[in-house]
Design a protein around this nucleic acid. Structure first.
Lengths: 349, 349
DNA sequence: CTGAAAGCGCTTACAG
DNA sequence: CTGAAAGCGCTTACAG
């Protein structure tokens, strides 16, 4: 079966070499500028010319060279992902989500962890963004909460998408995760189970997510007439060890809580640890709720009731924001947390 | 305090604009080709010329544009990380390690997950490598075990570094993790504790790591005169759920094992789950060993005895291999697993 | 040891 | 709607 003539000729001409814009122009009998217009979807090309060029590009499998294009554009086709030190699962989920959005877009994802406590970190990001001429960057909590970083990017003219618990920026630069709602939902759930003596282990007060989760929790309880006394509020560091330390303190209280809400699953695992060692049974003697719905939640026994975040969606949205041409679009800009009930909560003893 | 004159002049000339090779050439009073030679560390530059150019580059903070350089070189300054579906912690650790090695090298890491079971995946990687003109790729298990993928990269002339349990390739392309040794160490440990009735939940037989771990375990036991009967060998899928299923089968055996070695921590967590539900106490009635030393190992109760892999080092070595100019070098090409004893093992009941 | 010319594969700015 | 010229910031190939 003979191939279509055009294809054969075009392929033969190239002799296995990757096609360039010059090849396409020559084979199509147009100037390279016209091919460039087709590549860049300029409306200033006659329909039949466009058709001819597009067919040819498809036939020879031509894809423009990102480095050449980037050099001419003075901007690369790379998206940077900037993050400080979230959990491994969170990083990976954001990455997968971002890659979902970037698939077949011609953009690639380049990862850039950094230490937001080190003094020169903003300069480090600046050098990275400038040198690579990034098309845009995704800012993951908690660097996403750093206004100085956002200001620097703005000054550089680098687009960015911030992932944060609340809207810290204009809508086209934000993916909002509404952590306050998650905290409130936990409050409602525990209240409905009958708990009145509640405690919370919050994340670091310097994290917006931590503040939102705890304020959502405390606020919702207050609206239902329940107050958490100060000694039942412990600040943790989002780590297992800090969860252990906080739980030890809370369970040693003269009037220990009947339920503990933890700012994340890692700290909830810390509560589990203390409970086992102290012989406190979950959920019979103590209810525990986490936040994240990490894989850990289902590995623990009993399986942990926790708040799920759609992290992969979050990453997808953030990357999609960076690819948009117009500000107006159908991209969803927020993601809602929701409670996943498992077996770590029951009515108070 | 007046600045050194040279610096001031050079900076003033640029007026905030990023310097190019032309600026450096002009300011240094040499041709751009000479500057290029300095950039590329050519020996064909007189020492004082080099010194003059280097000083100037430092003063104005000149760094060559990777896209321009890449276009001229026909090769980018990007390293690709290709992986299938390892655990989140593993992916992130390899990434951190790779970034350690790439720091200040001018190279960046671009992530590329793929599905090695999908038929077109090798073509997908080929397009990725060709389009981005990658400097090299890191192959993480299990894609690292795919000879067809390695052959394709070889044909493309793309350098690669394979991370695998055994040497599948020439030394300058391998980071070997010696999983067999890890399995053997577990055997020795359990044997020393007095166990004779052993079981193993292996990873998928299609994973080289899984085979190495189990063969190391079984072989070491055999050398000590202990055989594992076939019904005590269960194949899992490196997942929690498969660990649960395998453990249920093993513990229901007429003569259940006194110790179970699991091909990874996730499956060990599955064994824990079954043990809790069946009222089997760890380590009093059942000893359990995992592999990975993932964060999960210390979140479980009792803390899991497991085999640690230095994953970050592994990633660092793989990336370092790709940066090397000569084959001969001081880069270490292998990493040794070692047992981390915690509280999940004891003498048999 | 150093440099002028041409080129990497695209786009911008200007014409028509 | 289309194209010829110049340029993005580097390197290669060739001279000297």
């Amino acid at each position: 079966m003979p191939r279509p003539r055009g294809t054969h000729d075009a392929r033969a001409e190239l002799r296995g070499r990757a096609a360039t814009i010059n090849d396409i122009a020559r084979l199509a009998g147009v100037s390279k500028k016209t091919v460039s217009r087709v590549i860049n979807q300029s409306p200033l090309v006659r329909a039949d010319t466009r058709e001819k060029v597009e067919t040819l590009m498809r036939e020879v499998g031509y894809v423009p060279d990102p480095m050449a294009r980037g050099l001419a554009f003075r901007r690369s086709f790379l998206i940077g992902m900037i993050y400080d030190n979230p959990t491994a699962q969170y990083i990976v989920d954001i990455q997968y989500g971002a890659l979902d959005a970037l698939r077949d877009s011609g953009f690639e994802l380049i990862v850039h962890p950094c230490d937001s406590r080190s003094p020169g970190y903003i300069d480090g990001v600046r050098r990275f963004v400038q040198l690579q001429k990034l098309h845009g960057v995704m800012l993951v909590p908690r660097v996403s909460e750093d206004q100085a970083l956002a200001d620097m990017l703005d000054e550089l003219g680098c687009r960015y998408a911030r992932i944060a618990a609340v809207a810290l920026d204009s809508p086209e630069r934000m993916v909002v995760t509404h952590d306050r709602d998650g905290g409130a939902e936990v409050a409602d759930y525990l209240q409905t189970l009958g708990h009145r003596e509640l405690a919370m282990i919050t994340g670091p007060a310097t994290y917006r997510s931590a503040m939102e989760r705890s304020e959502g929790f405390i606020g919702a309880l207050r609206r239902r007439g329940i107050e958490i006394p100060p000694e039942r509020l412990a600040e943790g560091g989002y780590t297992f060890e800090s969860g252990v330390a906080a739980a030890e303190r809370l369970l040693a209280l003269p009037a220990p809580p009947t339920a503990i809400f933890c700012g994340n699953d890692e700290m909830a695992a810390g509560v589990y640890r203390v409970a086992v060692r102290a012989g406190v049974r979950i959920p019979q003697q103590l209810s525990v709720v986490g936040y994240d719905d990490s894989p850990l939640a289902t590995r623990l026994w009993p399986p942990l009731t926790t708040v799920r975040r759609d992290t992969r969606d979050t990453g997808r949205m953030a990357a999609a924001l960076l690819l948009q041409n117009s500000t107006a679009s159908g991209v969803r800009l927020s993601v809602r947390p929701h409670l996943v009930v498992r077996d770590s909560c029951g009515p108070p003893a």
